[in-house]
């Protein structure tokens, strides 16, 4: 599963697309790992742009949960943004909206995660 990274100041926006399920979640996890390693206090923040994702299963959500736990343990911050309506409903029903930072759009996510990143985003 591909992640397309785009940097805005101290924040990396990772865009992905398609279905995150039992056949793709391992690839999603692997692609996320190097970015996650740099998601520490004073280093990068991560915002995952899910606009292109049409479905996420429990195993995909688990990858996000583990990523969020790891980031927290390292003093870093991670969020997800721009969920399609069906994916937003999956997050609500699974209660993942209560345990992850979920933002309506990439811009709003950046605004919450890092003012310099928002400034860089608005400047492009």
């Amino acid at each position: 599963m591909d992640l397309t990274p785009k940097r805005y100041a101290d924040t990396v926006v990772l865009a992905t697309a398609g279905r995150i399920d039992h056949s793709t979640s391992e690839g999603f996890k692997t692609a996320l790992a190097p970015h996650l390693a740099r998601c520490t206090a004073g280093q990068d923040r991560i915002l995952i742009d899910l606009a292109g994702v049409e479905y996420i299963s429990s195993v995909g959500l688990r990858v996000l949960m583990l990523a969020s736990k790891q980031a927290k343990a390292q003093g870093g911050t991670i969020g997800v943004a721009a969920l399609q309506p069906d994916v937003k409903e999956i997050f609500d029903i699974t209660r993942f909206t209560m345990v992850l930072n979920v933002f309506p759009s990439v811009r709003e996510g950046l605004a919450q995660l890092s003012p310099p990143a928002l400034a860089a985003f608005d400047a492009t």
Binding site: K69, I93, T94
Partner: peptide, 23 residues
Amino acid sequence: YSLAEATSIKEDWGHSSNIVGLE
């Protein structure tokens, strides 16, 4: 449990969720 509970604070508590059942 809810899936979020089963994969976080209640991991290894031995129960599952509606979501995993459905999948």
